[in-house]
Amino acid sequence: MLDSDVEYAGFWSRVGASLIDTVIVLTATYPLLWLVYRGDWDRIFATGLSEQPQMLWMDIFINYVLPFAYTVAVWLLWSASPGKILMGMKIVDAQTGKDINLKQSIIRYIGYFPAMMVFMIGIFWIAFDKRKQGWHDKMANTVVIRSSE
C-alpha cells in the first residue's frame, strides 16, 4: 500500500512533462517521415496536396507503432518518461507503489485514447481527482508521484 505521505504529481506538472515527451517523439518521427517521403512536407503532414500517394503502412508504423513501443519501453525501463524524469515524477502501481508492469503500461497507453476522446475530460480529471489520476491511470491502476530519485 502506498504511504499516506506520498505526493501525487499534479495536472500542470504532468502537462509540462507531456510537452517534453511530445518534443522528443516528434524529434524522432519527423526525420523518419522526411526520409520516407523524401522531404515532401505535404505527404509528411498528410495535407492531400501532394501529387504522390501516402504510404499507409509506413505512416501507421512511424506515427503509431514506434511511439507506442517507445513509450511502453521507457515506462518499463525507468518507471517514467523522460519528461516525467526531468520533472521529478514516477509512474507506480496505485496499490503497492512498485514499478508498473507490461500489462499496466499497455493499458495505460491505450487508456489515453478514451481519456482524450471527448474534450480531453479524462485528462482534465487529473486536476480534480484526490489521487491526481487521469482515466488512463484509473484503467491501469497507476498513479504518478513525485520522486526523489
Rank of each mutant, 00 (worst) to 15 (best):
Q133K: 04
L19P: 00
V6P: 09
S4I: 12
L33E: 03
A127C: 13
S148E: 10
S13M: 09
A94S: 15
L2D: 15
V74H: 02
W41T: 14
T22E: 01
T47R: 04
R146N: 11
V15E: 04
T29C: 09
G16A: 10
I62H: 03
W12T: 12
E7P: 02
K132H: 10
F119C: 14
T71W: 02
R131M: 07
L49C: 01
K132F: 05
F68S: 04
N63K: 12
V65T: 05
W57Q: 01
V25T: 09
E51A: 14
G122Y: 01
A17N: 06
T27M: 14
S148R: 14
D42E: 12
M1P: 08
D99Q: 15
R14Q: 06
A46C: 01
A46I: 09
T96M: 08
T47K: 04
I123A: 06
L102T: 13
G16R: 04
L35Y: 11
Q104W: 01
D3M: 13
L19H: 02
K138M: 13
R131F: 07
G97Y: 07
L66M: 12
L19A: 05
F11M: 07
V36Y: 01
L102S: 09
S105A: 15
Y37K: 02
N63P: 00
R131G: 07
I107D: 06
K84T: 03
K132R: 13
A17I: 03
I110R: 00
Y30Q: 05
I123K: 07
G83I: 10
L2K: 13
T142N: 03
V74L: 06
M55S: 10
P114N: 05
A80M: 07
T71Y: 09
I121M: 15
R131N: 11
G83S: 07
I110V: 15
V15C: 08
L2C: 13
P67Y: 00
V6N: 15
V118G: 01
M58N: 02
W41H: 04
M120T: 12
M116C: 15
W12A: 09
I24Q: 05
K98L: 13
K130W: 12
N101G: 11
P31V: 06
K90L: 03
I145Q: 08
I145S: 07
E51S: 11
T142H: 03
T96R: 02
W41A: 07
I145Y: 07
G111M: 04
G83R: 13
T27D: 05
K103S: 13
S79A: 15
V36H: 03
D21Y: 13
I100W: 05
F119H: 09
Y37T: 08
I107Q: 06
L33R: 02
A73I: 00
F113Q: 10
I24V: 11
W41P: 00
D21V: 08
L2P: 06
R14H: 01
E51N: 11
S148D: 13
D129H: 11
A69V: 11
F128S: 14
R146W: 05
G134F: 01
M117C: 12
I60M: 12
M117T: 13
V15I: 14
A127E: 13
D3H: 10
E51V: 08
I123D: 02
W75P: 00
M55K: 12
F124M: 06
D21P: 12
F124A: 04
R14M: 03
M117F: 14
I24H: 00
S4C: 05
I24C: 05
F11E: 05
A73V: 02
P82L: 04
A73H: 06
D99V: 14
